[in-house]
């Protein structure tokens, strides 16, 4: 019962925050809404017995990535008059959301057709740190290392990009 209630609350927060993210005219508002959505998602992960993912979602997504976005928005000092070009953002996005409801409906129907069964029980240790770690550094060690390489490349790339000035 508690589980169902928590699920209802968290998913409602996530969806509303998501809609708010795409509807806000100023990116700062979007970013703050997105943080809320991320945290709600972290709660959902926790409900799915994925505590490590939940923690990293908050740490990395909400904590680092979104903080970075907010930081850049403030760095660029985006003012209301800079957003004049997008006066019709709210109605247009609302229209898009309504249109998107159609494929969503189709997909929801499909999901219901395919996986109606309740979640099975899992071992108590499922999703705890040591189990995740064993898998990450066992069978998944190559992708893991590749990702670390990717991060290095991205770091170098972003530094190179930020230092350079485009002409024309």
């Amino acid at each position: 019962m508690v589980h169902a209630v928590l699920f209802a609350i968290l998913s409602a927060i996530a969806v509303v925050a998501a809609i708010s993210t795409v509807l806000r005219r100023h990116p700062l508002g979007s970013a703050l809404s997105l943080i809320v959505a991320m945290i709600a998602l972290a709660g959902l992960y926790a409900l799915l017995t994925a505590p490590i993912v939940a923690i990293l979602q908050i740490l990395v997504y909400a904590g680092a990535i979104l903080a970075l976005i907010v930081f850049v928005i403030m760095l660029l000092n985006v003012r209301a008059e800079d957003l004049e070009y997008e006066k019709d953002a709210v109605p247009r996005t609302l229209f898009a959301l309504v249109v998107a409801a159609l494929p969503f409906g189709a997909m929801a129907w499909a999901i219901w057709q395919v996986v109606p069964a309740p979640l099975p029980a899992v071992a108590t240790r499922f999703g705890n740190l040591s189990a995740i770690g064993l898998h990450l550094f066992g069978a998944w060690s190559l992708p893991f290392e590749l990702v670390s390489l990717l991060l290095t490349v991205a770091m170098v790339g972003s530094v190179a990009l930020a230092k350079r000035r485009l002409e024309g």
Partner: peptide, 14 residues
């Protein structure tokens, strides 16, 4: 993406 979704729904088995 939607096209793929349609394909998945149409051809997917229960």
């Amino acid at each position: 993406t939607l096209a793929l979704l349609v394909v998945a729904v149409v051809t997917g088995r229960r």
